[in-house]
């Protein structure tokens, strides 16, 4: 395969919890600007795969390169590596004791050592990017779920990551709030952000993804452009899964 090196390059990734093998040899490369969607039944290992990317879960074996840097290398500065990857969680995980701006600027100030004024300028720009410039002084509890998730996206974006990892970003949201988060993700895509998304938003996957990956039993079963994967899945397991979620 020629062309520019992938932003994320995962090879032979294995992860076990005790005797349970959750990931059994994942190979996955995500190109610059690509939006890759991971779907699959619960327990298929898709969240674990995402969490291995920034080593929130420690992989048992395999290699992970992010923008050309080996994040599994011994002695690697993991905190520096994590700045390259923004992560968005199902449960938002905003810091409840800080304002939206405080949430967004914490890592800018403490990890990147920016001065307060500089960090706040960057933080406000990130909040504006998710349409919440006017909520900078609000505490998480004063925001709706959708707004909280957008602040969480801004918190990751503020660090100007190479890739954004979304772990079921809309699963904890009331249906009427999902749209605002997907709108933000869509605009990120238009700005060329590389994204790896674990989600059940099939419509969004169909509309926005470049590639959809179906995982089951800790393996990638099938992948392809959304039209092909949703329209004409080859593998029986994919067909069964898609039939299950259709109703």
């Amino acid at each position: 395969m020629s062309g520019p090196a992938p932003i994320l390059d995962i090879r032979a990734l294995h992860k076990s919890f005790g005797a349970t093998a959750v990931l059994q040899g994942i190979d996955l490369a995500v190109a610059q600007g690509e939006l890759v969607f991971i779907i699959g039944p619960s327990g298929s290992g898709k969240s674990t795969l995402l969490r291995c990317c920034n080593r929130l879960e420690e992989p048992s074996a395999g290699s992970i390169m992010v923008d050309g840097a080996d994040i599994m290398a011994p002695g690697v500065d993991l905190n520096a590596m994590r700045l390259r990857m923004g992560m968005v969680f199902q449960s938002f995980n905003l810091y409840p004791h800080m304002t939206a701006l405080g949430n967004v600027t914490l890592a800018l100030r403490k990890v990147q050592r920016q001065a307060r004024a500089e960090a706040e300028e960057r933080g406000r720009a990130a909040l504006a990017q998710v349409g919440l410039a006017e909520k900078a002084r609000s505490y998480p509890a004063q925001l709706s779920g959708g707004q909280q998730q957008r602040v969480a996206i801004a918190r990751a974006l503020a660090l100007e990551p190479k890739i954004m990892l979304f772990d079921e970003p809309t699963s904890a949201l009331d249906p009427e709030l999902v749209g605002s988060v997907l709108t933000v993700m869509r605009s990120l895509r238009e700005q060329g952000m590389t994204m790896l998304v674990v989600s059940h938003e099939m419509r969004f996957a169909r509309d926005a993804a470049d590639r959809v990956i179906f995982m089951d039993g800790g393996r990638i079963v099938e992948q392809g452009p959304p039209g092909a994967l949703f329209g004409a899945p080859r593998e029986p397991r994919t067909q069964a899964f898609l039939a299950d979620i259709a109703h």
Partner: peptide
């Protein structure tokens, strides 16, 4: 999740 959010943004 609070730890994870913090660590994922590079905090030690």
């Amino acid at each position: 999740g609070q730890w994870e959010a913090a660590r994922s943004t590079g905090l030690g």
